[in-house]
Design a binder for these strands. Structure first.
Lengths: 205, 205
DNA sequence: TGTACATCAGTGAACGCGCGTTCACTGATGTAC
DNA sequence: TGTACATCAGTGAACGCGCGTTCACTGATGTAC
């Protein structure tokens, strides 16, 4: 970081960074605008040069998160290659990987209470990201015989719920809800069993 | 409610009730001690006749929740009758039913940040409740051939995660994460597919 | 039944605190000539 | 290259607010005689 004088240079990014660290450490409501400012080495009032206020700062953190998240999901999905099944599994893993690597963003996105529809820009980037999972589910569901095929949205909702539950219950430091298994393993095996239940993996595989 | 004079009569219960309503409406951090007191028609200071402070009040709400939750789960499990499978499915449904019927309690238990190990009493009642799900999973897993049987704790962790995810993402009013399906349906079908994947339900059932 | 008194559940004022936000300001930077 | 000036990103003091918590108190209740 360059030596900072009166002007910070890149305060906006530094504030988001500080907010993310605080959110990660104390949850979305543990974060305060003043503390984020202090962490960036700046007066609380300076925040208002770059954001409309507290919520706007959180929303920006969430927006960043959805952007990275969307990129990761798209990269993992990779247009459904090499197979719909592989792409789907890869997308599920990317979900957890994101939550692990960017916990602050994850919380800002899913636990901060910031509405996805707060601004059109936020809605767009969020819908893109969440759309990838649904797309992967849609592709994969074509391999299920129509008469036993659940609607793709239901399908992706299941995977999303399982992933989110694993993150919330087992990938956090929350005391008392420990499990003898790694979150990665839990999600991987859980998705595996689920896909087997859909007949997408051979029973004895 | 009887007319109240200087003495409230049942302030402790009224405070917990007020806290639960606030938690349900605004989340665990939206609740304030002062507001809970006001809702019970009482000065904030009066709270300290019954609780050690804010956290103690939340912990009591959580304790109550685990008690009801444990009862419901045990009732649903019913000693594994009529079959391990039926008992297991019934237990899963009871989970969601609890979250729907007692949302304030649910949040106090799983999202308030109150540690299960805050007091031995809280730990006991929580472990009893969570133990039922694991017991149901253990019973059911005996019906899986040993070589493809996942550890029961993993099994129950999957179901817990799926249930929790459905609650958090789809059973709340959180905007933007709506789904065209009812949470009950999502959980029911999700668990069904999962159990099929374990070979516990016939593939064409 | 009536009175004295202990117990207890509430009051209400006060505290210190950190919050988000505003405001007039000032120091640094960049641009026109 | 040097100077005047506009622009902009920060300061720091102040605000009103609601919070959790404390304290000495007082009104209501229950019990002993």
């Amino acid at each position: 970081m360059p030596k900072r004088g009166y002007h910070h240079g890149n305060l906006k990014a530094a504030l988001v960074e500080g907010a993310l660290q605080l959110i990660e450490a104390k949850g979305p409501t543990g974060f305060t605008l003043s503390e984020a400012a202090k962490q960036a080495g700046v007066t609380p009032a300076a925040v208002y040069r770059h954001f409309e206020g507290r919520d706007d700062l959180i929303a920006e953190a969430a927006r960043e998160g959805y952007e990275v998240f969307g990129d990761l999901m798209e990269y993992a999905y990779a247009g459904g290659q090499p197979s719909a099944l592989a792409a789907f599994e890869s997308t599920g893993r990317a979900y957890l990987a994101f939550a692990r690597k960017y916990p602050g963003h994850y919380v800002a996105m899913f636990e901060s209470g910031i509405s996805i529809n707060r601004s059109p820009e936020l809605a767009a980037v969020a819908n893109r990201a969440l759309g990838v999972l649904e797309k992967a589910a849609t592709d994969l569901s074509k391999h299920i015989p129509p008469e036993k095929r659940p609607p793709p949205q239901m399908f992706s909702a299941h995977i999303w719920a399982l992933s989110h539950g694993v993150v919330e219950l087992f990938a956090r430091g929350s005391p008392g809800t420990k499990s003898p298994f790694e979150p990665e393993d839990l999600l991987e095996t859980g998705i595996g069993i689920y896909l087997r239940g859909l007949g997408l993996i051979k029973p004895d595989a």
